[in-house]
Simulated scan of single mutants.
Amino acid sequence: MIFITVGTQKFQFNRLLKTIDNLIENKDIVDKVICQAGYSTYSPKNYKTIKFMSQSEYNQNIKNCDLLITHAGVGTILEAKKNNKTVIVVPRLKKYNEHVDDHQQQIAYGFSKKEIVLESDCSNLKSVLDKAQEIRLKEYKFNNKVFIHKLNDILDGME
């Protein structure tokens, strides 16, 4: 199963939803697709969308999927990596009114450069989907001890 999630900020990501619809129609995607569509207005013909999911339903879809396709939301990427999922990141772009700026390109690039996710654009999603079948991405190393230590240093400095 492929889980698509585009976040919950008040921006559409119709471009990605249309691309997925076309890939299914052309039989480039044959897996079951579930999509959390947020504020997108496009209504796919070939797969089901749910505007907003409960946190438990969302987490369950991440746990159950074989592949996650997502915008460059750091929380979503990290949740998927906690569950050892293959992740394709398609950044939202300002020029399509999908976000206020293009910071998601930097996030996608940063994770993909470390070989933790695959970065894609809608124009090359088919080839990245094919690559996802062959590649083994690196695990993300969570380091809560370092984070807690740095947070404590910051808090101590506030006294």
Rank of each mutant, 00 (worst) to 15 (best):
V33E: 09
I88Y: 05
T41R: 13
P91R: 09
I148C: 06
K18T: 00
I62Y: 05
K138C: 10
L16S: 05
K114T: 11
V90I: 09
F13N: 00
S127N: 12
Q12C: 02
A108K: 12
R92Q: 14
S43H: 08
I29W: 01
E115S: 14
F52Q: 15
A80K: 03
N144E: 15
A72K: 00
H71T: 03
K114H: 03
K141D: 11
N22P: 02
D31L: 12
K18W: 06
K51F: 00
S120D: 07
D130Q: 14
E25H: 13
E119S: 05
K81A: 10
K51P: 09
S40Y: 12
N46A: 13
D121F: 14
R136Q: 13
Q105K: 14
I2E: 05
L155Q: 01
F13A: 04
V33S: 10
R15Q: 12
V146Y: 13
K48V: 01
A37C: 06
I88W: 09
E98F: 10
F52Y: 12
N97Y: 03
I4A: 13
Q60S: 15
M1N: 07
N26T: 03
I2R: 08
K131L: 08
N64W: 11
Y42Q: 08
T8K: 00
K145Q: 09
M53G: 12
L118E: 02
L125T: 03
T76E: 11
L67A: 01
Y39W: 13
I24W: 01
K95D: 12
K81L: 15
K32T: 14
E134S: 12
D31E: 15
I50P: 14
S127R: 12
G110L: 04
H149N: 11
I4E: 05
V90S: 03
V128T: 13
D28K: 14
T5C: 07
H149F: 10
E119G: 00
Y140T: 06
T19C: 15
V87F: 04
N22W: 00
I107Y: 05
G7E: 02
K51W: 02
N22L: 05
I62F: 10
N152K: 13
K94Y: 02
Q60G: 09
A132T: 04
K10H: 10
N26G: 04
S123A: 14
K131V: 00
V117A: 02
D121K: 09
K150N: 08
C35F: 02
I135L: 10
N64V: 04
N83K: 14
Q105T: 13
Y47A: 11
L151A: 01
Y47R: 04
S56F: 07
H99F: 10
L151D: 03
K63H: 09
K82V: 00
Q104K: 08
E139T: 15
K113M: 15
Q105C: 06
N46L: 01
D121T: 11
A72R: 04
T5H: 03
N14I: 01
I24C: 02
N14L: 08
D156P: 00
Q106P: 10
Q104G: 13
N64C: 08
K81S: 04
E79R: 14
D101F: 01
I135A: 12
V117P: 04
D66K: 15
I69H: 08
L129Q: 02
K141V: 15
L23N: 09
V74Q: 12
E119C: 06
D28I: 06
K150C: 00
F147A: 08
F111N: 06
K113R: 05
A37E: 02
A37D: 11
I116L: 10
G38S: 05
L68F: 11
E79C: 05
R92S: 08
K45D: 15
